[in-house]
Design a protein around this nucleic acid. Structure first.
Lengths: 112, 112
DNA sequence: CGTGTAAGGAATTCTGACACG
DNA sequence: CGTGTAAGGAATTCTGACACG
């Protein structure tokens, strides 16, 4: 669960290259976008641009599709995962807040 | 001087995108290749593909060109830097070897 | 539902060359 | 030397649609 930023998320790769790397057809890649599984950026003139993160996600999609999982199920799965991540972030935040409160002896939500 | 591998060096970006990111014209980018300052990969059908590392290098080139440095000078400069890097790698290797020798009491190059 | 394909058009990229300063 | 540009051709990408199972 590395937080390896910057280049990973920059949307600069065109669909043909993504197709080569992932082994998916251009048609498939566009279809997965239609099903909301990925969201590339668009250039001024409308050509799609993908990031390495998008490519990783497409690999996951490819794996699940091979197992017969429908795109609608894949979508649910992704949403579930995103929730978990958001939740763990929230927990980390609360724990940190707890530490700070303990340290500075702050009254938790004084109801006057 | 981070050793931040993988995505950084993958040649997947086409020249138009590189042009947008660097602010250099397509003509300039091709010319710098002609002068051996960068070496993109080629796809089957001959279109150039660049990495993020290439883009960083192009930024350096742009900066030096703005200062009036000629491409031939930039090339020398790059070669100098590469030498330094190769050298420091070599030194690290030799230092490691020295430690190992000390540890295992190996005779250095016994001339019989 | 998921994917292929032909269709027509727009934008990209390539090379070799001429121009200019 | 470094860069712009017009030229002609090849390859890419886009959308909406029909086909098939």
């Amino acid at each position: 669960m590395q937080e390896n930023h910057s280049y990973r998320d920059k949307k600069v790769i065109s669909i043909g290259t993504v197709s080569e790397i992932t082994g998916l057809s251009v048609r498939q890649i566009r279809y997965y976008e239609e099903r909301q599984l990925i969201y590339p950026e668009r250039t001024d003139k409308g050509t799609r641009k993908y990031s390495f993160t998008d490519i990783e996600r497409l690999m996951e999609i490819a794996d699940m599709r091979e197992e017969g999982v429908q795109t609608s199920e894949i979508l649910k799965d992704f949403k579930k995962k995103e929730n978990k991540e958001a939740m763990s972030k929230d927990i980390r935040k609360k724990m940190l807040q707890g530490q700070l409160n303990a340290h500075f002896r702050v009254q938790p939500e004084s109801h006057k």
